[in-house]
Each structure stands twice: as structure tokens, then as C-alpha cells.
Design a protein around this nucleic acid. Sequence first.
RNA 1: GCGCCCGUAGCUCAGUGGAUAGAGCGCCUGACUACGAAUCAGGAGGUCUGAGGUUCAAAUCCUCACGGGCGCACCA
Length: 555
Amino acid sequence: MVLSRLDEARQAIRQRILAKLDALGFRGLDDLVSLEVPTEKERGDLTTSFALKAASRVKLAPRELLARLEGFADGLDSVERVEVAGPGFLNVTLRTAWLAEVVRDILGRPDTYGNATVGQGRRVLLEYVSANPTGPMVIVSGRAAAVGDTLARVMSAVGYQVWREFYVNDAGGQIATLGHALALRLRELDGEEVESTWPEGVYPGAYIKDLARAYRAEHPEVRGESVTAADYPALGAWAAERIRAGHEATLREFRVTFDRWFSERALRASGAPEKILQRLRERGYLVERDGALWFTATRFGDDKDRVMVKSDGSLTYFVPDAAYHADKFDRGFDYVIDLLGPDHHGYVQRIRAVVEALGYPADRLEVLIIQLVRLLRGKELVRMSKRGGTFVALEDLIEEAGIDPARFFLLERAPETPMDFDLNLAKLKGPDNPVYYVQYVGARIHSVLRQWREMKAPEVPVDLALLREPEERELLMLLARFPEVLIRVAEERAPQHLAKFMTELAGAFHAFYRQHRILDQAPELRQARLALAQAVLAVNIRGLSLMGIEQPEVM
RNA sequence: GCGCCCGUAGCUCAGUGGAUAGAGCGCCUGACUACGAAUCAGGAGGUCUGAGGUUCAAAUCCUCACGGGCGCACCA
């Protein structure tokens, strides 16, 4: 199947090379013949180094091998010229007029250009963010949200069926702790002084005070002093649901939505964790030691065995987690992808081990660690501490930086790379932000189109062969590459490539726009350049929308 | 100590075994009587942390060292 005009050329050239090699008696070189877009423009549009790779196998010097391929591309209407360069590279230059037809390809399907079927309809469950409902989301959650959301959008575009899920840890000890914190804040509302005796490990954040006021408004009869430890889980559950709803609202504002908010509490209530224990026991992967029940994770490559049932009889978080993953596989997903935070390094082996122990295909479970976002104010490192109650919330980032700049910034870097985030935000808010550079392309084109409509110039048929300037060619090539950028983003789970591409496309357009004029040209050239500009606009809008970023018509 | 991630320009970061390693910011020099200057053109700035190895070819793969981050609970 043909992905794009560029891909069509690539496949045709490859076939010709292989056919010629075959005629020369060289077979089995299929894997070596691939055509890449070179970094340097002087090296043509597509380049291959197969001759260098095949040299030892065919016992021919690379350039000698290439010499025997002479004329392989004759009659291909996509190819302008073929050159042998350096120690044995083959550089192919495409015919500009042929390449220019990409504009027609795009304008024929502006909203779906770049879509593909490489996903083959396979079902993917993407779990991301899954922030604990015990406090505000921090910036790394925003990073996971932006990355997960963009992966979901791009993977859908290239033919996967993507289901988005947020796992809510609304059960367990931390919820009781949250209830404890709420109880103390209720006492505080009743006039009690609680700060000096605040227990270690109980969330001190100011947001709990707001929750306490909300709770008081809903339940005016509940006095702080009458609350006991037995009430903590219920109080905590109430608070967790409030916080979770807040997360949902914040994420929706950030243009991130989920198909399902998967509740740990509901999972526990269903009895699924006990069934998991039963299955592990039947398979012989549970042992009793020190009064607790352990999963023999070391048999599956983990560092140590893991406690499943504590000596007090309660479950560790790991049992519902295992049950959750079993549930994912039971629902028939072909791929299960978890985007986890930087504090989960040790967790990857563990969850993989239990998935394998339960008999699921562990190679279909993919865990991506979204790396830490270090916060700086100027040169100074901002220490984040949930315990100390000092941290910068995702909400603050959205408000201060704006959604578009924040999303673009978070998507520019490889997710597994730790990144620094300067809270001075001058770059984020100001015109130097790269997202404005990209959005400005659309604003400029919209402006040109408005003026063209006012001109009421007669329309003439579009002759794309008139697009011959180097700046135009650069744009044509980038437009032709867009579909494979999306595939790369999806397959490598690497959204930064899309951000990079959008910046390159914007740079090429700005360069074209400063150099050449569109409207005050002969009608034929004007029409061709308008078509080019519209195609650039379509890809600009599409790329930005896949990043969850808007394309304003005026800025 | 063990594990995972990372180390590329002054800063923040891209980089698919391939040819002369890129972008943005910052710095310097230029460009609007101009479809939008939130722009463009040009310049300075690099022992790709180091040492070995594999390869015709290494920033990229392997090993070791060094530096940084994060993990290593009967917390989640």
C-alpha cells in the first residue's frame, strides 16, 4: 500500500534497483536496499547506501556495483536524475513537477492527509497520567498528559484503535491518610490548633483546607472531634472523588480526555484482586514467608519477590495493579501501553513479571517512563515536595504559560529524557516561543487568503509545475514527508518528531514567504502558489491538531 | 551497593550505523514605502563526557570508567 507520493517514489525506485540486481544475478539483498531522505539537500531527495553494505557479499567495490545498475531508473516519471557519490552512495533527485502534485494530494483530502493504515486496526490501550487523587497534579503529569494524548491522536491517525484510560488509585492506605488529613482540617475549622501536632506523613497541603470547607458545607452535622480513624477511609474516598473530578476538569481544559477512568476501588469491590491471588496460587507463584504472601517475581527476572498480602491480611497496591493489567488483557487489547512517572523505574520489571506469571503475552505490554521535569526559577532549582506542600501544579502552568505553549514545550523533548522547565516562563509567554513561530504560518496564510478573496481575481486552472523555486521545492518535499513523520511518531512513541517537523515546515514557509510573493503575480503562478500555501496550511493545522494545539486565524 | 534513564554549542534540546553533527534561546551584523518583522538573510560558538572495541563507516551498537537524575517498602 502506498503511503504518500514520496513513498510511492521510494517503492518504485527500490523495485527497479532490486529488479536490476536480480538481472545481474545478485539476490537476497532486499533488506539492504532502503531509501532515506538525506540531511544535505545537495545529496538529492532520496539516498541509499546499499552498495556499501552489499559490497562484501557481492564481492564488488561499491561504486563498481552501482556502475552496473546504470539506467535502472529510466522511464520512471518520478525521477529526475541519479548520481553516484562519495564511497558508494546512490543519490536520487525527484522531478519537481512530479513532486509538486503532492499539493493536489493534500487539497483533495486536507483533513485526512497523513492518515495511514499501518496500525491495521489493532487495538491499543494507552494508560497515562493516572495521578493519585490525593493532591493536585504536578507538571510531570502534564508531560504525561501531553505525550499520551498526542500518541493517542497520532496512533489513531495511522490506523490503530486507541482506547485511553486513567487509573485512579482511589483505595488503599493513601486514601485513609487523605481522610486523616481532611479530619484534621475539619477540627481546624472547629477552632482547634492542629499545625503543631501535625502527624508525619499526613498531607499538609493547603488544598485540604478547601476540601474541608466543601465537606462542611455538604455535611454540616459532622464535627471534627467526633471523627475517628475508622471514618478515615470514607472521608478519604469522598475527598479522592472531589480531587479526581478536579483532575478531570483540569485535563479537559488541557484538551486531554479519557475513554474511561478506571477506579481501583471498583476493581477491589469486584473481587478481581482475590481472583488474581487465586490464579497465582494455582500456578505456584505464591509463597508464604514472614507471615505474608509473596509473589515469586524473581522467577520472572525481577530483583526480588513482592509482597501481595501483608501480614495484617490487607492487600498491597500490587494486587489490584496486577488485576488491572489482567483486566486490560482480558478485554482483548493487542497492545497495552503504560506511560508511567519517573518514580516507577523499579515497577516495570515487577508488573511485567506478574503479567507473564498470569500467562499473558508480556511482550505486548510496553512501559514508557516519562522522565522528570526539573523546575527552575531562573538558575535556581525549585524543590518539589508534596510532603512539604510546596509544588507547582499543572493548573498553575496552564494558567501562566497558556495551553498551546505548554503543550508544545512538553512535546518537544523525548519523553524519556529528563527536562528542565524554567518557571520564569518568559520564553513560554513571549513571542520567542516556538509554538508562535509555527502558528504564525497559519495566520499569515489565512491573511493572504483573505486578501485574495477580496481581490476577486479570476481563477485559472492550477498548474503545479510552475512551482520551481528552491524555497517552493523545500516546502513540497516537507509536505511529502508528513505522512511518514506521523508513522514514525506512532511506531517509536516519539512525539518530539512531530514538533520538530512542524518547526521545520514553519521555517521553510517563512523563508519562502519573505523571498517570494503570492498575490501580485501572473494569474497562473498566483494560483499555483495559493494552492501551495493552502496545502501548507492544511498540514500546519493537521499537525498542530494532532499535538492538541490550536491554529488561530489571526494572532 | 544494585537497577533504569540521561550526558551533543554559553543555555534548553533534536539527531533513522553513512558523507562537512543540527534547531531554538542568548550574542554579533544586516533586511520593511513590502500579501502580517511573532519574520527573513548572514556570523561567531562543538576533542558529541572519557577510554577501548565491533564496522568499509559510530554521536548512534558493545564493554569499562567518570558525571548527573530517578528508583531500590509488608507506601502507591
